[in-house]
Design a protein around this nucleic acid. Structure first.
Length: 492
DNA sequence: ATGTCC
């Protein structure tokens, strides 16, 4: 499969006579990292029923059905695969009023790590938090979070500032008919079935990090030293030289359960009806809008997405409380919460369209109609891109050119080595020493090798691709001071 | 990513 270069950081991938090509964003060095299967997945997605546009971002690599790092737009169909198993996997950023000096000693950072880990568990199946009984998530509150998302009621019950809802890309997701009641009804039905048991344990994962590439990271904010970036940073609420906290997490077991149920149900329908899978790939099952199957998927996606939203907001509140325990009087406020695994209804080419972002981040620039009622109408909203602890992470803002990429950018650096290969080829001591040398503390006795910076693409080259393609510009770089990660695989 | 096989 040949990509045809169209600019310094843009190319197209032909998808056949009847289809517009896949739009590819990335410098030549980055495009060389795309393997054949990743490109095949992009073509399968582009030629699938009802799909009008596919975009491939610089962090693209093989995913389930569609590449991770792609956008799939359809005005007529929904695709569970191009949303993925971790429904509404997202980034959030908390800005504190602490100067960088406040976390300069290793002792303080160790205390912060402990205070955070006590409140926020990581990894598989874990959800019981060290919090007062009055704030324990019961089935009723869990169900409310799933149906209402970040409603004032849910936030108040969890002790989260209700104003943080304004800092969410989407504070809530409604059901297929735009109602909350359809979600309540759907959740009731799901809880009747055996596929959705152990509900109490599942909802107790509210306020927990997952495993794998999920993390919490204490940062120092370096605002880009240019007038425009400084002005944008001020609107975002970023404070140069101050401590911030970046989180990457999703909808935990709840979203996984919902996604798995949908894949199975839709596969059964396809097999029953003898419908071919696009590119012969079961992970590209889909449903035409307006069918009971599409309605059920949209409802389940919304239930998972709402859980992810409340999970992130609770994590941010718990992180703030951990800081306040160690450094009394710390103030903090949410900069933004934005997803990279979600389908949203947006206007594309004057048509309401379901834009599926799979490992891709929404990028609306200044003046975009959908930002009119938000604090970011005149700047564009914050784009939160995790890089790696050593290269840093980035806060960006979309440029006008983002229209070309379906108003999307990448969602991070993108994996370079597969997990298995990283574990086999990287040296544990080299990985651990690289953190010590950079004076970055972690909660892990041994940092998971498959999550080492060396397992990911060169973040600066990825950012260069985004800027050169005219999609977005950097507002601030985030420098890691300590990292919270699930280390179950690293212990021996 | 994930009650890593209901």
């Amino acid at each position: 499969m040949e990509m045809i270069e169209t600019g310094e950081a843009t190319a197209i991938l032909p998808a056949g006579n009847h289809h517009s090509p896949v739009k590819v964003f990335g410098t030549e060095a980055i495009r060389a990292t795309f393997d054949e299967l990743c490109l095949q997945q992009a073509i399968n997605s582009r030629t699938a029923p009802g799909v009008t546009q596919v975009v491939l971002n610089p962090d693209a690599h093989c995913g389930y059905g569609a590449p991770i790092g792609c956008v799939l737009a359809s005005p007529t169909h929904v695709y569970p695969g191009p949303v993925g198993y971790d429904i509404k996997c997202s980034m959030s950023l908390l800005q504190t009023d602490l100067p960088a000096d406040a976390v300069s000693t290793r002792e303080i950072r160790r205390e912060l790590i402990h205070a955070i880990c006590r409140r926020i568990p990581t990894g598989m199946g874990k959800g019981a938090r060290d919090v007062p009984k009055s704030r324990k998530v019961d089935e009723k509150l869990g169900a409310a979070a799933m149906c209402e998302g970040a409603s004032s009621d849910v936030l108040a019950k969890l002790g989260i500032p209700t104003s943080w809802a304004e800092r969410c890309e989407d504070a809530f997701h409604r059901g297929h008919d735009d109602s909350v009641d359809s979600l309540r009804q759907r959740l009731y039905e799901l809880r009747q079935g055996r596929v959705f048991n152990k509900f109490r344990e599942r909802v107790q994962q509210l306020g927990s990090y997952g495993g794998g590439n999920h993390f919490g990271e204490c940062e120092v904010v370096d605002v880009v030293d240019q007038p425009e970036a400084r002005a944008t940073a001020e609107v975002f609420g970023l404070r140069d030289g101050h401590v911030a906290f970046l989180s990457h997490c999703g909808s935990r077991g709840i979203g996984h359960r919902l996604a798995t149920g949908q894949f199975r149900a839709l596969e059964a329908k396809f097999d029953q009806w003898g419908i071919p899978y696009p590119g012969n790939d079961k992970q590209l099952v889909h449903a035409p809008l307006g069918t009971p199957e599409a309605d059920a998927y949209l409802d389940d996606m919304a239930l998972g997405a709402n859980f992810a939203t409340v999970n992130h907001l609770l994590i941010n509140q718990l992180v703030l409380e951990a800081f306040q325990e160690v450094i009394p009087g710390t103030q903090g406020t949410l900069v933004y919460f934005i997803s990279h695994n979600i389908a949203r209804q947006e206007i594309v080419d004057n048509r309401p369209t379901w834009v599926h972002r799979k490992g891709a981040t929404r990028a609306f620039p200044a003046g975009h109609h959908a930002l009119r009622q938000t604090p970011f109408a005149d700047t564009g909203h914050p784009i939160l891109l995790p890089g790696n602890p050593q290269a840093g992470s980035s806060v960006m803002v979309a440029s006008e050119g983002a229209r070309e990429s379906c108003y999307s950018v990448n969602h991070g650096a993108g994996r370079m080595l597969g997990r298995r290969r990283a574990i086999k080829e990287l040296d544990q001591k080299t990985v651990d020493d690289s953190f010590t040398d950079a004076d970055i503390l972690t909660n892990c006795r041994r940092y998971p090798k498959d999550e080492a910076p060396a397992a990911y693409k060169d973040f600066d080259e990825v950012l260069r691709s985004v800027e050169k393609a005219g999609l977005a510009t950097e507002v601030a770089r985030l420098r890691a001071r300590f990292v919270i990660k699930d280390a179950s695989d690293a212990d021996d």
